[in-house]
Design a protein around this nucleic acid. Structure first.
Length: 516
DNA sequence: TGAAATGTTGGGGCG
DNA sequence: ACGCCCCAACATTTC
């Protein structure tokens, strides 16, 4: 069982406390030197771990002063949601890549960890110590993050520094897309129709010409111990991903070469390579969404047959902005139902079922394949995310927040906005949400979207020899066929933990009770 | 960016 | 030739 809980809450917390002590012991010996007579600029990297097409960095370059590149690992959890295990792994690699890139340009990334002070105090210290005049960053959009950033901004202003912020991660700022009456959209399609026509990508091109400030001592990334140990469960992640800006660019090109053509239809097929897999890069800001937009438009203009596929892909970028606009409007999108009717929903507590879901042992092959892909690679195909989410929420009737938290811990692309917005969409509590009575059938969804069973056989190898006829409902396999295929249902692979038809009825009854 | 139940239609088998 | 049944295929509605 140990492997299983390694990434979840309390162990991570204990782990952090250990590291915090180490840090406190070692920090006293470090002296931050103040050597520069000339003032410098600071670029505060957060969810924008890239040098190219980075508005904050470009603005700093335009200011003409040497640039101090700064990253703060915020583990002061009163305000900030701690990263899950998979993202901590990714962050480690991404910061390493960013450091190398900055070093190749003659600079250095200032790494600092924050466990007990306010972010504003940390920033003020750094600015004072290094004679920083101007501070540049790209904006974040959750309430907890905007609160932090507001505090930092006013603290810097009071102390005589000059903070300025930019849009580095969205197509448009949430407050820029409004209905005629001036309110934010609550339905995706009109939101998209309002955003799409006059959107002009405006992130700068390439890496700006600038000089870096690197005369400082800072934390060693290795001491942050973001990489998992005891056990190191990250092999599957390492095989699946190349975090960092170069990996992001390579990923985009691969998608253009192998996935874009046919995207509109095939993006729903987990057995095919037609999704972009850009989500983790986007969530860390390793690639500019404006750059993706213009490169896609360029592809469309080069080849007319990519028109509908290209726009289907851009529309998904629109969903990302839509999620952020919801995040921006609500105090805590991962904790509060967007639609407060759901506050009274009779969620079930069932640890055994929850564990089976997390481990990919529900007895429904398409669900288990997805959950195992997630555990192994830190990622899951979008169609399968909807299926497993629907299964947890509607078949097991477990609170969507529980699923959202599991995804937060295990996804390399766990996104502040997309993750909770999508869970709420499936639950029916979200904006423009899937109607409550839309309950995925985990058998027919498998048949429809993994028609040859390639995806299921890959991730649920114990079923790999089953003929297609039984692959989606393995419990119906005759005993002798089970023996021939080397899998005993109920022994080598679980019987379904819940009967679809009964679960469907139970969910419909529960949702019905909301109305009264 | 569903699924299931229910309703309708039309062709073929058959008395 | 006709009515009747069966049922697949499709359409509509209901959850």
């Amino acid at each position: 069982m140990c492997w299983f809980y390694q990434r979840s809450g309390w162990k991570v917390t204990n782990f952090l406390i250990r590291c915090e002590l180490n840090f406190v012991e070692s920090v006293g010996s470090k002296r931050i030197k103040v050597i520069s007579a000339e003032d410098i600029s600071l670029v505060w990297f957060r969810d924008d771990l890239r040098l190219s097409a980075n508005p904050a960095l470009n603005a700093a370059a335009d200011a003409g002063k040497p640039i101090l590149c700064f990253y703060l690992l915020n583990e002061n959890d009163e305000q900030h949601r701690l990263l899950g295990g998979a993202k901590r792994w990714w962050l480690d690699k991404s910061l390493h890549a960013l450091s190398k890139k900055i070093e190749s340009l003659g600079g250095k990334l200032f790494l600092q960890r924050n466990t007990d002070r306010s972010t504003a105090d940390v920033l003020l210290d750094v600015c004072k110590s290094h004679n920083v005049k101007s501070v540049f960053w790209n904006r974040r959009y959750s309430t907890s993050e905007t609160n932090i950033d507001k505090n930092v901004k006013s603290a810097l202003n009071e102390a005589g520094h000059t903070p300025s912020s930019f849009n580095g991660s969205l197509l448009k700022e949430p407050w820029e897309v409004k209905t005629n009456s001036g309110n934010p959209y609550k339905v995706f399609t009109p939101f998209w129709n309002a955003l799409k026509p006059d959107f002009q990508p405006n992130h700068p091109h390439g890496v700006p010409d600038c000089s870096f400030f690197s005369d400082f001592e800072c934390d060693d990334l290795r001491d942050w111990a973001l990489h998992p140990t005891r056990p190191d469960w990250s092999d599957g992640l390492r095989e699946a991903w190349i975090p960092g800006e170069d990996g992001a660019k390579a990923c985009l090109e691969t998608f253009f070469d192998e996935g874009l053509k046919g995207y509109k239809e095939k993006r729903d097929r987990p057995d095919l390579p037609n999704t972009s897999r850009l989500s983790p890069y986007l969530s860390f800001g390793e690639i500019s969404v404006h750059e993706i937009w213009s490169r896609t438009l360029q592809k469309i203009s080069e080849s007319a047959e990519l028109e509908s596929d290209g726009w289907a892909f851009l529309r998904e970028l629109g969903w990302r902005d839509f999620s952020y606009s919801l995040l921006f409007q609500i105090n805590n999108l991962s904790a509060e139902n967007w639609n407060d009717k759901f506050d009274g929903f009779p969620w079930e507590k069932n640890e055994a079922c929850l564990t089976a879901w997390r481990k990919g042992q529900t007895g429904y092959p398409i669900v288990d394949a997805g959950m195992r892909e997630l555990w192994t690679t830190g990622w899951m195909h979008n169609r399968v995310r909807m299926i497993v989410a629907s299964f947890l929420i509607k078949h097991l009737m477990i609170d969507w927040r529980t699923g959202e938290q599991w995804f937060w811990d295990t996804l390399v692309d766990a996104d502040t906005a997309n993750n909770p917005a999508s869970w709420q969409w499936v639950a029916g509590s979200g904006a423009d949400a899937s109607p409550y009575f839309r309950i995925f059938n985990p058998i027919t969804q498998g048949e429809k979207f993994d028609p040859d069973g390639v995806y299921i056989r890959k991730w649920v190898p114990e079923l790999s020899k089953l003929p297609k006829k039984y692959l989606f409902e393995p419990w119906d396999t005759p005993r002798d066929v089970q023996k021939q295929c080397g899998v005993l249902i109920g022994h080598d692979y679980p019987k379904p933990i819940i009967i679809h038809k009964q679960a469907r009825k139970r969910a419909l009854d529960a949702y019905e009770s909301l109305k009264t």
